[in-house]
Design a protein around this nucleic acid. Sequence first.
DNA 1: AATAACTTTCTTTTT
DNA 2: GAAAGTTATT
Length: 798
Amino acid sequence: MPILILPAIATQFLARILLHLFDKLGCMRQFHLTPEASADANPVDAAEILEGLNAMQQEAASATDGPVLIIAGPGSGKTRTLTHRIAYLLGAGKARPFEILALTFTNKAAREMRDRIKKLVGEEAARGMWMGTFHSIFARMLRIEGKKIGYTPDFSIYDTDDTQRVLRDLMDRYHVDGKQFNVRAMRSIISSAKNQMVSPGEYEKMVASPVQEKAALLYRPYQQSLLKANAMDFDDLLLKPIELFEKDTQTLKKYQQRWRYVHIDEYQDTNHAQFLVARMLAAVHRNICVVGDDAQSIYAFRGADIGNILSFQRDYPNATTVRLEQNYRSTKAILRLADSIIKQNKDQIEKTLWTENVDGEAVVLKEAISEKDEAQKTERTIRDIHVRRGYPFKDFAVLYRTNAQSRSLEDALRRGGIPYRIVGGQSFYQRREIKDALAYLRLIVNPSDLASLRRVINYPARGIGHKTQEVLSTFAVKEGLTLWQTLERIGDVGLSNRARTAAEKFRALIAKYVSKAGTLSADELAREIIREAGIFDDLRKDNTPENLVRWENVNELTNAIAEFVANSSEQATLSAFLQEVTLMTDADEGEDSDNKVTLMTLHASKGLEFPAVFITGLEEGLFPLSQAASDRKELEEERRLFYVGATRAEKHLFLMYARSRYRYGDQQTAVRSRFLEEIDASVIRTERGDNFEQRKDRFVTSQRGKGAFEGLDPHYYRKKPSGKSNGKGAVSSGRRIVYDEGEGGPLSPGMRVEHDLFGEGKVLALEGQGDRAKVTVFFKEVGQKKLVLKFAKLQRIG
DNA sequence: AATAACTTTCTTTTT
DNA sequence: GAAAGTTATT
């Protein structure tokens, strides 16, 4: 890197931070602003300084008051930039710590930011700052202010599991059943309605399908159940602050005054509610600074609205826009590949990424026979680079589209004796035994908590089965009580002696610890109730290795609680612990010091970087996922995901695909991903060092048409004919399952078909591709229907 | 009536 | 291959 030349405006900012840093480190104050000189001064911290300098080129100039939009590519140090801005505000005396609100999306990013701030301005300042994920910040605020909208500070936070428990109850009560009305569908419809801030009343009017009709029926009762349970789901954590602010403008004013500077990381991932609450909070001082990259928007599925970042300048007309286009991370080869990926997308802000880094080695494409082979090749390649080039294991990351793919990779790494860690997936706090134990604690803290009560009322088995629970539920609804209140009036319910005794015993158990909650410390409380409830006994009942691990996990939980109580200085209440733990979905044990290969989903990789990266499973139907293949917007999101994955790599990038893969419990043949056919092949070499021969004609690029294929594999996965998957092979092979069939599919308009339920009919039209393919059929009995081909199980007749 | 054993279904990403 | 749903057993 050449000598660094600083823009004049940046000097004051830089000098303050650097002097501060040198002060802290106790090293000399004389330094030349060249990389070489600072490297001499102190090799370790010089790296930090250099990082800082790199990131400060333009943002120093825009470290002014007023709204700021920072658009930046991957590897340009976005989060770092934001951190330095905050440091600047403090360093320049513009703001005091508690006047700054910094919002991130992952706990990981929040932690990273806090660590950097600590380094730059000291621990004291960092502590006073409101810095964290949207969800954790608002949980914290609602602990303080929630009573104004009907929640006690002990409210429970419901994750997907819990909300589905509540919904299942409601589906019973409102008689929503049938195959297509499953809990997951209902939950996701309600959740996206909430994300878009559509109220139950508004939603009822928008209903356009039977599934939506059922969801509309459940939406309002669902919200009422949560309120009654003194619980909020993840969506509520964003919506309730808005509700609160609208209802009580005094509270809004308080926080508007308090937070003079609002900072948001990964702005492209904000949803409508987050946009609104940010705008509310920044309305007085109008010092809002957001950082993001539209090309890395990969969370539309959970309501992220890329429009927020695209229209920032319209929302804040006098905003300063800063573009950071220099990439400090990857080689030219990798960046070129990444650029060729994202160029395929139509919806994007034009950015020209560039780097001063070396050209680097070619990106390597590897084909494998099976997923097992893919995993072994990955393992061998890691070992090879590790041994021959001396890369430590922590320099490697293996990325995949779905969590299920980690299994074969783990197998291969374990077999090869290579240490690894898995990020994300099921974190400690999401394991069943942990959630069971936590449910007891949540119930003690918040007895209204319906989901937790349902979770543990018969675990371990104590004779309160479905029937009994149903009776209790019905009584509760009839009397307008919570389930817990029903247990307190168990005599009035009219149960059999046996059931009543069991229920009463359970109530007494919980009540005992509710009253003990004041006297025992949190960890003692946890240990005792877990023991007395019989969880330990249940896990030791039979001596399977799984149960042993579970038993250890539960023990570990009590340690974690003890640690939490010991470490947190402020009100380290048990309920605060329980709330935080629910929000900690990223496997948090990310000890970076460990020298291990990292396995994770592409989503989880965002914001990270590794010298060597493997992107596995580049196959049609998997990446891009079949559901996304027929919709341009979804396909573009998959492509951005590929882009995110590729730009994690600093020096080496490997693209892997397998010709067959186990899916749905069956071996299925696979076609390599269309993404491979559309990228810049000039930077790619095959395993043997050959040029990569693309088959461009295989897929129509996204620019042409609406993502349709031209005369090619309409199915991405085809079952091998051998299938002895279900015992009744004869029956299923006699039946012609359409999506299983060869080129073009056997159906065409005019054909006569038969459906299990609807009977005989005539095909009118076909549309969509692969798993999304739909067929319109006119049935004699029931008239015209549009069916998803994959599930319709149509049989040709005549 | 509760629970264990078996069968069928449905497969994404996460705060 | 896991989870939900169904049937058989206690």
